[in-house]
Nucleic acid binder design. Structure first.
Lengths: 226, 226
DNA sequence: TCTAGTTTATGATATATGTCATATATTTAC
DNA sequence: GTAAATATATGACATATATCATAAACTAGA
């Protein structure tokens, strides 16, 4: 068992600073796990016992806030290092992680990561950069939502899946209207109504979860001008 | 010039891992600067040339988003390390920093920090923890705002300054109604109206910027139940 | 195949929030 | 100290958004 997977972003981005001895130690303790869509494989409140990396698939970060409201924090692709947001700050996870599509997760020994930080300065620097960029991205998306109207919020979700995940004009939304509501802070009915309005205005076509973007400039203009 | 300031959080929290030789090198290049209230000492888009730490005072992080809207990201006390959110992720700042009260900032050579990360593993680990906790706090506040009504949003601002900054029932708000609007995503008029309503309902007393909390439980209940 | 549950959808209506107008109070610039 | 700018405040009104009700479409499981 090693880390020689061809498409592994960890290798490309994260461990360019690791020498082959370190890589062997690191990957010797690696476990690869396939997570079926819909499975919650990290639970808010659980003790952090390992370092998890999304090798393939699509996941959502979500939490229950102090008032008991369910809330989606962000959506993640293999470019994101699933468990890095909490791992060095807290003993337990402050969010849950659920697979939206069948996903592959690599599970590493957390002590080896911590030892690497201490012994390999370049690794530490790369980890800090990667972590910073990932959390800046999440924060920026969250801040965007605060100041936008329901149209801007829903447009931002559609554009996110188009521009960051699927890259095509037509795609199947991997989340329900209810999840869009949990992400944007809108009510379900408002989300559905805005989608219907986008459809009536010829911005998108909708067939259940299937979305086809017809007027991308129009959507972007709505997103930008709230 | 050294780092022997008695109340320095950097020493207590951040540099417990630094030996005296490293401390000398680190602090030899330190510059201390007094920032008058209202001064913007980090500007969004500026190249990151130094590592800045808030020794004393109160600051706000703010940005102009892609659509050109002014937005306040968070408020910071000396417990926050001002420039760590961007420093290892980007070449330039993605936010501005302005003093809300007269503040003292310690400015360190950024290359020395980067060298310390590479040569001192414990320092690197402490930096990662500190940074994680700070950005988790900011994100959590931002997520809280997304799902709350105007009452919850304004209550959260009042409770923040009471519980995190001044600790007394009576205090002077360090920000204007307009800034509360920029932080919460509400309009100025809505912020003013909600504050007036809290006053009429006997939750707070208001004399311009002066706030006195009369019914803290009531405020917290509003915050929690939206 | 049927039933129960969930998801999507829409209308009617109530409430929350924004916009525009205006007035007073406060701060800033000269 | 005065004028101009900014901040606070409130009313009237328009628009955005939530809530409640209902129904059709779509799953999941027996």
């Amino acid at each position: 068992m090693n880390c020689s997977c061809e498409n592994c972003h960890i290798q490309a981005i994260f461990f360019k600073s690791i020498n082959s001895d370190e890589l062997d130690e690191f990957c010797g303790a690696r476990v690869e796990k396939i997570i079926p869509a819909g499975t919650t494989f990290i639970k808010q409140g659980d003790k952090i016992r390992s370092f998890k990396y999304l090798k393939e698939g699509l996941i959502k970060l979500h939490r229950v806030d102090d008032a008991g409201n369910k809330q989606i924090i962000s959506f993640g692709t293999p470019m994101d290092f699933v468990s890095i947001h909490n791992i060095f700050a807290e003993e337990t996870y402050s969010y849950s992680v659920t697979a939206l599509e069948t996903s592959t997760v690599c599970i590493f020994n957390i002590d080896i990561i911590k030892r690497l930080i201490k012994t390999n300065g370049e690794f530490a620097e790369n980890l800090i950069s990667t972590k910073s960029r990932a959390s800046n991205r999440i924060l920026s998306n969250s801040l965007d939502l605060i100041s936008k109207s329901m149209y801007g919020k829903v447009a931002s979700v559609i554009l996110f899946f188009h521009e960051k995940i699927y890259f095509t004009m037509g795609f199947d939304l991997p989340i329900s209207r209810k999840e869009i509501a949990e992400y944007t802070g809108l009510s379900i009915e408002t989300v559905i109504r805005v989608i219907s309005e986008f459809r009536r205005d010829g911005l998108i076509k909708v067939y259940g979860k299937r979305i086809e973007i017809i007027d991308k400039d129009g959507l972007m203009s709505i997103y930008e001008h709230s």
